[in-house]
Computed example of a mutant assay.
Amino acid sequence: MQTLKEDVRQSILRAARNEFQSHDYTGASMRRISAAAGITTGNIYRYFTNKEELFEALVGPIYEKIVHYILDLKKELERSYAGEDNGLKYLNMVEETIVGLFLEYSAELTILMNRSSGSKYGQVKERMVSLIVTILEDAFTAGPQNAGELTTADRQSARMLAGTIVEGVCLILREHEDGETVKRLVNEFVFLYHLGMQHRCTR
């Protein structure tokens, strides 16, 4: 059997990135991907068993990065509170690193957040909202005016804000392809979120 070549695999992934940006997971075509990669449809299956495996190779690592990043933020928040910080230190981590993540992986993030319907990542936005809710709830209960108890109003606010964050990011990725534009808009979005959270956590 001919040795599989990494440059061919990367060519397939590039073609898949373009295909999945233009079509939802269910509407994407392995035939179009193979044609764009310059190989036969039969040959593409020597590299990826099916469309699901190809999609996983493209967006799976990015999803893991996002989840790991969000969980790191949660840990940093908990450390800030344990050290009697005002709990806002972690927000600086958002501003310093999230923009780089979106600049480097804007295409993959667009696919993951807006084009994954029908795949195992079809509920990814809801998962992101749930993770962000846990961070916001911690921030609300640890504020200087709070007694560490989460009220119904706090839960509602956390859910609303988390949904707004995720949908705002999805909107930016859906409407803009240029990496620098995405970077600028995400940076502005995160900055405004930062200001709002500062006010909410210190009031």
Rank of each mutant, 00 (worst) to 15 (best):
R17T: 15
R17Q: 15
E19V: 01
S22R: 15
S22P: 08
S22E: 15
D24P: 07
T26F: 00
G27A: 10
A28N: 08
S29M: 06
R31S: 15
R32E: 15
A37R: 01
I39G: 01
T41Y: 08
N43Q: 10
I44Y: 01
Y45T: 07
Y45R: 05
R46L: 10
R46E: 02
Y47H: 04
E52R: 03
E53G: 03
F55Q: 03
E56R: 00
E56M: 00
E56I: 03
P61R: 03
I62H: 04
Y63L: 05
K65F: 04
K65W: 00
I66M: 14
I66E: 14
H68W: 06
H68Y: 07
Y69P: 08
Y69D: 12
I70K: 11
I70V: 15
I70W: 08
D72W: 07
D72R: 01
L73F: 06
L73N: 14
K74S: 14
E76W: 01
L77P: 07
R79Q: 10
S80G: 13
S80T: 07
G83H: 09
E84H: 05
N86D: 15
N86R: 06
G87T: 03
L88Y: 08
L88F: 03
K89W: 09
N92F: 02
V94A: 04
E96N: 03
E96H: 00
I98D: 00
V99I: 04
L103P: 00
E104K: 08
E104C: 00
E104L: 06
Y105D: 11
Y105A: 10
Y105G: 04
A107Q: 10
A107T: 04
L109D: 05
L109G: 09
L109H: 04
T110G: 14
L112G: 11
M113N: 11
M113W: 12
N114E: 10
N114V: 05
S117T: 13
S119E: 14
S119W: 08
K120D: 14
Y121F: 14
Q123C: 14
Q123R: 14
Q123T: 15
E126W: 05
M128H: 07
V129I: 15
L131Q: 11
I132Y: 05
V133F: 06
V133H: 04
I135S: 13
I135F: 10
I135G: 12
D138Y: 01
A139H: 05
T141K: 09
T141N: 00
G143Q: 00
Q145Y: 00
N146C: 03
N146G: 02
A147L: 09
E149Y: 12
E149I: 12
L150F: 07
L150Y: 09
L150Q: 13
T151G: 13
A153M: 13
D154H: 14
D154V: 02
R155K: 15
R155G: 01
Q156W: 07
A158L: 10
R159D: 04
M160H: 12
L161M: 11
L161A: 12
G163Q: 07
T164R: 13
